[in-house]
């Protein structure tokens, strides 16, 4: 019986290792195809519209409420220490470095990541992917590469929108509680300036706000594509692929957030790693 358990554990470990290998192999091939012909420009534009522009409403709603609740809770804590003047600093830095990237990543993982898995999974079980191969099309080049590039471009773009809207939400709460808008904004900018600048003009505090969403975009596209391509059988497997995509992409986003924060701390100092 013990041997049976060991064998099962061994088999599971092998499957997991193979899965990790396949995941990274898929990512590498999809990235490599970005730099060779044929390149499916039309598919890239369609995916940028679907994955990015289509996610704007969820980004706007999530952003404004996140910024607002962050300002609301923080103002209570800061007022206890007579430090409400730092509200802009706290909201701005939190949104740009942490909340904006993570919430945008999670929102797009839920909406677009599951969509990628469902679309590719559905194509897999209806033999559309076999049909693509029959016509000499590499399905990774045709399906995964445009989605990967779309996510790499649109998740950072959506994060910038989320950051701006979140700061606007925080500003609304701050001004409604009597803080002048210019004090809020000056407090925020002074924190960015304190962190230093790259190339003389780009605040280092913005680096995580760009680097993290790019990584999250990659995770969302590859996870959705990986589980979509692995779908087999019927509609049930497509449902399972979408669920796994959302769960795995969300967990990876949180884990990657931590490791990237550590890495950026080493590269740019503590101010650029929050």
């Amino acid at each position: 019986m013990a041997d049976g358990i060991v064998a099962r554990v061994d088999e599971r470990m092998r499957e997991a290792a193979l899965g990790v290998y396949e995941y990274f192999a898929l990512a590498w091939r999809a990235l490599r195809f970005s730099f060779s012909r044929p390149f499916y420009w039309r598919d890239l534009l369609v995916q940028m519209d679907r994955l990015g522009a289509g996610s704007i409403p969820i980004v706007l709603i999530t952003g404004v409420f996140s910024g607002a609740v962050l300002a609301l809770q923080s103002s209570i804590e800061l007022s206890a220490y007579g430090a409400t003047s730092f509200l802009g600093s706290l909201v701005g830095d939190s949104m740009v470095q942490e909340i904006g990237p993570v919430l945008t990543g999670l929102g797009i993982a839920g909406r677009a990541g599951s969509g990628i898995a469902a679309e590719i999974g559905s194509m897999r079980i209806t033999e559309q992917i076999d049909a693509l191969q029959t016509f000499g099309t590499d399905p990774i080049r045709k399906l995964v590469t445009p989605r990967l590039l779309a996510c790499l471009i649109m998740v950072p773009a959506a994060t910038i929108i989320m950051d701006v809207i979140g700061i606007v939400g925080g500003l609304m709460i701050a001004t409604s509680s009597g803080m002048p808008a210019d004090q809020f904004l000056r407090s925020m900018w002074s924190t960015f300036a304190y962190g230093g600048f790259l190339f003389g003009y780009f605040p280092k505090d913005f680096v995580p706000g760009i680097v993290k969403p790019i990584a999250f975009g990659g995770v969302i596209a590859i996870t959705g594509s990986y589980y979509g391509l692995a779908a087999a059988g019927g509609a049930e497997s497509v449902g399972a692929a979408t669920t796994r995509t959302v769960v795995v992409a969300s967990v990876l986003i949180f884990a990657l957030d931590y490791f990237l924060a550590q890495l950026l701390m080493v590269l740019f100092g503590p101010q650029a790693a929050m």
């Binding site: 559905s122 033999e127 076999d130 049909a131 191969q133 029959t134 590499d138």
Partner: peptide, 22 residues
């Protein structure tokens, strides 16, 4: 995959459920 394309282009396939790109 690339090497087999030359031969595959000479073959047409009609799939069970047509497999049209929806």
């Amino acid at each position: 995959f690339e090497e087999v394309l030359e031969f595959r282009r000479k073959i047409g396939m009609v799939f069970q459920n047509a497999a049209l790109f929806d």
